[in-house]
Amino acid sequence: MRHSRLTLWLLGGFTLLVYAYKILPVFVVVALAFNPPEFGSFPIVGFTTRWFGGLLDNPAVVTAVKTSLRLAVATAAIATVLGVAAAYALVRYPFRGRAAVQLLLTMPILVPHLIVGVGLLLAFRILGLSRSFTLMLLGHVALTMPFVILTTQHRLQAIPLYLEEASRTLGANGWQTFREVTLPLAAPAIVTGFVFAFMSSFDEVTATLFWRPANFDTVPIYVLSELQNSVSQELNALAAALVGFSVGVPVLTMLLLHLWTSRRRRPARAPEATPAWQPATEGDAR
């Protein structure tokens, strides 16, 4: 696709502006986290790292971060597997009631989390189940799966059927075809779905508030209870640390990957089948 220089400049400038807007809250929070006054606000009057010092000494914060990461990784992994399978079935196999299944699988994003939150507790009570990590994990999987399905589905639709047919003609079975042909082609969408699922599980608070067992705090829940008091500098520092972590880990992974691939010869494969950011985003989730 060729474009005039002017068009490219306009597009680039506009994108830059949008990114500035997108990153602004990160900038604000990180800047405030290094500001000395106890109650974070502008203008910046100095530089301190003491707000970060308190974080590692606070076992509640450390536990909450670990819990959130564990929950979000497990959620995203399960939701991706189940979601891709469902999306594949919906796209490739016409079956009776497909429209109904499609609607059902979109339902989790339609439903206010508050309603699911209370409703699931009622269901637990009727079934005599008590709250546990597993039940909450499955709840998160159900809530985040639509993101995987919606993003994967139309990518799968765009993969020409003849590619899969050719693979089968060449003797590959269904699973081999899926692994060797479909999966690589759908990879960008699947990874995006994984990241969506990870992020929305990491950020979920309403339903989690109702489902979690005792002694179980995720980051958003910890933040919520801290907000009874104020947006303390510790919250800004926590946010800044998470941002730093999420930037640091993938950048490091990418660097390593770059070293690794430049030592071996670059494979001459279609670039968008394995975008460079795929291992990176998976890396940041770990």
């Binding site: 509640a60 829940i221 910890y222 209870s225 801290e226 009874q228």
Partner: peptide
């Protein structure tokens, strides 16, 4: 309880 620093 109300969580946060108060509960700590």
């Amino acid at each position: 309880g109300w969580g946060g620093v108060g509960q700590q």
